[in-house]
Nucleic acid binder design. Structure first.
Lengths: 349, 349
DNA sequence: CTGAAAGCGCTTACAG
DNA sequence: CTGAAAGCGCTTACAG
């Protein structure tokens, strides 16, 4: 018996539906289909309706690759994280920021391209290849360092770029202004207002521009207001925050308040104080430069600077979207405020 | 005076360097260039060397769009998060998982496409468009729900898919096995071993498969070992965890140990206990199903199930990469262990 | 309003 | 080993 199936096509991947298929079925040319599906003038309403019907029926979807080849936007924004996986996994800031970026992007149908890099050089290389490949329409740069090479490199590519936490407006580069100095003044006003005049500040990595801005503002405030201010340079490492805290607590004349640069550092510091038998806020007030659920539920609850990383992300996303669309950028400002909770009070002595 | 600049070209975007440019400059055809730069046979070593030199000199980079149009892989993996931005910003699991995925992906030059979605239906739509657009080579699905529609939908697309936290191997769909039942047994062994026989479990959202697996294992253990076990269904909301904790604490015969399904819930519960004047672990032991720096630095430090979300992410990424490469998938298992800290001890009574 | 054609930047048979 | 050509799926002038 002859196998009549010998001549059937091999079961190759079901072929993609193209505008040519639609054109054939609708009895027009592929050019007409292109105009119709893109809502451009050049086809009659009747023809357009017929073409759209066929497209729907065939479940056609435009080929993203072909469209990009013709110069269409990729509808994606790039973000490279140049920090170790462990830090990104711990610091609540990153997930909040990304969540904020996402919520704005998703609303407009944009995706986020995310990658991690060893250092700023690798980060640049990734941004560059994404941009040259047309895989992203713009990129977001986080936490510029002092004399950051990335800003320069990206400016020379002349593509939409938004820097978060630096004041670099430069060619096609815009930035989300984060008023670190102002936020530090809010913090110091809060503590000074409560009556503290011996304040310590345990910092993150001062190679970052935002950290150095905070340090400057701290020093400035102390000088202006006659507050005894002690800065202990850290690097976001909780172990180091613990040491610094212990050193301060053991000093002959310890501070009455301590400010920490991150949530993780704050928690580490508080537990150190507790283990040394010091009461918060009775013996020393504590303030965190990052708010979180943990700050709200810990005992005592922690007074924190709420700069709202989620809306920082939203703002950055909104700016890059405007830049991509070629609209004038409404430079967003992210508000910070001090949320007063149990961990700060007037000094007892 | 005649403006000699009238005839200069407008300063349009500097044109892309293509293989045609290389071909012309090297005196060959573009076909030859393609073979040369892709390391394929068909050109002599001398020609190849010359072509590569020119390509380097012209700083040529292949057009990603043109390559995908010809069927090349996109070198990106997709992940859609179907949870509210607030939850993603708070739960440490997500950032750890993403960090883990990234660290494996980046090592192989892959990027992550990330997007947030309202619900599972929207998530499916995004995955589908990414896959059909050829923007991703495979997708990762997190936390399958009971009777999850996503798995079925993705299986029908016949593209590499890895489900994290479900046991669904099905067509082109693989899964990272997370032994929730076994982990719950570890937890209960720990508590039972300390002498607890009245244990409460405050859960996350039981619509998730992984939560329901944990609940089943909890009930099973209690029945088998004669432990009085009380499950209070929650939904990851710290406020709800707080209520549940207060209710338990106020019961006529309260539990001697409480297990929480997430870090945020645990912290909320601990602070509730503290505000009710109950000591941890003196009056009640506390155990968290998610480990973090916070668990390590809180006072008391929190006994936690360390399932290592970072390596879960790494494993998932490794599997999807194998699936994409068409290699047999070595199904990874993520180990869990109970890290014993201060918040659990033998019951005092 | 509609059709026929060129082109985006690459890859891949097919001849020489 | 090398050249000339077709094709991937779209968009966009350019004629009718």
């Amino acid at each position: 018996m002859v196998n009549t199936h010998d001549h059937t096509e091999p079961p190759r991947k079901r072929k993609r539906v193209t505008i040519a298929d639609i054109a054939q079925r609708a009895g027009v040319t592929s050019g007409a289909v292109s105009l119709a599906v893109n809502g451009k003038p050049g086809v009659s309403d009747a023809t357009r309706a017929r073409i759209l019907d066929v497209a729907r029926e065939l479940r056609w979807r435009p080929s993203h690759a072909a469209q990009t080849l013709m110069g269409k936007n990729s509808e994606a924004v790039g973000l490279v994280l140049a920090r170790p996986a462990e830090v990104i996994g711990e610091e609540i800031f990153f997930s909040k920021f990304i969540a904020g970026v996402q919520s704005t992007l998703s609303g407009r149908g944009y995706s986020l391209m995310l990658q991690m890099a060893e250092d700023a050089t690798a980060e640049c290389a990734i941004h560059q290849s994404w941009i040259l490949d047309g895989r992203v329409d713009g990129v977001l740069v986080l936490d510029p360092r002092i004399d950051d090479p990335r800003v320069e490199a990206l400016a020379s590519l002349d593509h939409p770029t938004v820097v978060v936490g630096g004041e670099t407006d430069h060619g096609s580069v815009r930035s989300v202004r984060v008023d670190n100095a102002g936020a530090m003044r809010l913090i110091m006003d809060h503590l000074h207002g409560l009556g503290h005049d011996r304040v310590a500040y345990i910092t993150g990595d001062q190679a970052f521009r935002h950290i150095s801005e905070r340090m400057d503002a701290f020093a400035q405030f102390c000088v202006d207001q006659g507050v005894w201010g002690q800065t202990l340079a850290g690097n976001f490492d909780p172990a180091r925050a613990r040491e610094a805290t212990a050193r301060l607590a053991g000093a002959p004349h310890p501070p009455t308040a301590i400010v920490y640069d991150s949530e993780v550092m704050t928690i580490a510091g508080m537990s150190t104080l507790a283990s040394l038998g010091l009461r918060v806020p009775g013996d020393v007030s504590v303030l965190s430069w990052e708010d979180s659920t943990t700050c709200q539920v810990l005992h005592p609850t922690i007074t924190a600077l709420s700069r709202d990383a989620v809306s920082l992300g939203r703002t950055a996303a909104a700016e890059i979207l405007q830049l991509i669309a070629g609209k004038p950028v409404e430079q967003g400002t992210v508000e910070s405020r001090v949320v007063h909770r149990e961990s700060t009070s007037a000094p007892e002595s």
